[in-house]
Nucleic acid binder design. Structure first.
Lengths: 339, 339
DNA sequence: TTGTATGCGTTATCAT
DNA sequence: ATGATAACGCATACAA
């Protein structure tokens, strides 16, 4: 028994008694073919179970219809809402998303970007602006349009859809200051390869500096976005000489872990220790007290990023630059400083 | 200024003073070319910034190296761990993942499957076994190998990597019975297009039937995997004539929502009402009391599924059929039945 | 409206 | 070790 190959345009043409050009037209511009022949062709397509060969199509059309996104991780909830919206909007516009994760690692991200381009993506969505110049050069060279998300701190000629990480955290810190807090600590993602995390810390420092405090006394714990790691960070922070009255976390997962650990140590939140989060994830409403946090418009960001990328793919020259507003969500975990 | 196109194999060949065949060899089988010429070619590749054209390669190789996965949703944590593992293992084996979501909708899933195949995926990862016969016929016709995850309840000739949804829930129910519970209720995902959810409910019914109780009295609330919706379901269940002493949830998100709502109504968990979950998500450890749940080996499932798919892609005839063990995780939310 | 013919960029076979 | 060349399956410019 011969290995019967997949049917091609030619098979359909033969069965329908027309040329391959006509079959191609039936599929791509049905209005340009007589309805009688169109029906014959459609029947042939059905009976043969024909579907166009992707590689051949990509070769001749010079595009694949695929766009790629490289995000730090798929495993956590942090990016899932935004990416879900991104992919939904992309789908509406007829594009398909390929997802890769960088494990928050610079080299891995560079590898993934190259891998995606080798897989024929027509455009890219990237998180943050922190990567080697060589990567940007490569993207230029390949003429691959890209959009950067989760930050707006990018060169003027690049498209981005994000928000002001520093400003958001500065606002939250100012709020804590107004509640009487003077001893701050921060739990952040590792700062080394993460411009968003650095921005958030910078916001805290800016606010306390403006309040006349010394930003260099700010204790910073760098830990991954995990409950237990954030808990351990709390242990370390509370062991310090002048323990903080408020811990500003770079993310709600960390805030949730911090709250749980503080409570396990017998501290009341927020009476004894205030804790704030970032992102307004589902986590923020699961713990008790609920987390005072920064609401990030993830869905909007994903949607707008998709639109920006589609525009770039269409050849629009002006790179879209979108700054989304964030807002403080006051819930129970931030209270007045203890007396 | 002319629109300079991307460099091709021919450009490289010309610059290096060799034939395109030699350049191709340099890229795909470097050991089959003299090191002197290889160096010349590599230099030419660098200076031109050459990268192979994906479409041309896919056309002649008859494969894209891309596999697709269609999952109910990207937005929740339910599938993210498994998918992350799936993609990681795939990456190790040199494949790229394209992700699509079906919104838990049968027609949408069918559309997404066709769309992915139109995008040239060489294989597919699907969740659950519930879909139209036409979809399976289409996959056969296209000779597209696929693996089914999250269940093992599939025809014998299909590859699957999953666990026993019914058995897991039956075990949990039996545990509740041994704690004296006699009035059960279930909060489940909508059953209509979800074989895993139906399996879990069937497990509850089987256990209570075996205990001599009437499974037809079992109250079932079908709601999405959202905190608020699960809370509302609790309200309805508790309004019933003979309120349950234990609510078995099909998922930890629902269990978390149920616990919060019960507590807001002034009930103590588990003293007044026991609640169980499923999946052992991060949620389960965030709420207080922590959720007694079914641990599902998501990471293993994703990894094994990737391996199974890669095998199928390599042409292995025997479809892999993997059943992963699940286990009960006893935490605080399930206690003895109230007296 | 339909058909003919060409080219897209690569891999692989067969010579040399 | 290297080169010429034939597919691969499709879209499209041009002819009829």
């Amino acid at each position: 028994m011969a290995e019967s190959a997949l049917p091609t345009l030619e098979d359909v043409a033969r069965l329908a008694g027309v040329s391959t050009a006509t079959v191609s037209r039936c599929l791509n511009a049905p209005e340009r073919v007589a309805s009688a022949t169109r029906e014959r062709v459609e029947n042939a397509v059905d009976t043969l179970g024909y579907a166009p060969n992707f590689g051949a199509r990509a070769l001749v059309m010079r595009r694949t219809g695929i766009v790629g996104a490289v995000i730090p991780t798929l495993a956590s909830a942090i990016f899932s809402r935004g990416i879900q919206a991104f992919q939904h909007e992309l789908d509406r516009a007829g594009w398909t998303l390929v997802l890769a994760s960088s494990d928050s690692n610079r080299e891995t991200e560079a590898r993934q970007i190259r891998a995606l381009i080798a897989r024929g993506v027509d455009g890219l969505f990237l998180v943050g602006a922190e990567r080697d110049e060589a990567v940007y050069r490569f993207l230029m060279q390949r003429k691959t349009p890209f959009v950067i998300g989760w930050t707006t701190d990018v060169p003027a000629d690049q498209a981005c859809v994000g928000f002001d990480n520093a400003g958001a955290m500065e606002a939250m810190t100012t709020r804590a200051l107004s509640l009487g807090h003077r001893r701050f600590a921060v739990i952040s993602a590792p700062l080394a390869q993460n411009d968003r995390a650095r921005g958030r810390v910078a916001g805290v420092r800016a606010a306390i500096a403006r309040a006349g405090l010394d930003p260099d006394t700010l204790a910073i714990e760098e830990v991954p976005y995990e409950l237990g790691a954030a808990g351990d960070a709390v242990d370390r922070l509370l062991a310090a000489e002048a323990a903080p009255t408020v811990v500003m976390c770079g993310n709600d997962v960390q805030a949730a872990g911090a709250i749980r650990r503080a409570q396990q140590r017998g501290l009341r939140v927020p009476e004894d220790l205030s804790i704030t989060g970032f992102d307004n994830l589902e986590h923020a409403q699961l713990v008790d007290p609920a987390i005072t946090t920064v609401d990030v418009p993830h869905v909007q960001m994903g949607t707008r990023a998709a639109q920006a990328l589609v525009e770039a793919l269409r050849g629009d020259e002006q790179p879209a630059r979108v700054t989304l507003p964030v807002s403080l969500v006051m819930r129970g975990s931030l209270g007045p400083a203890p007396a």
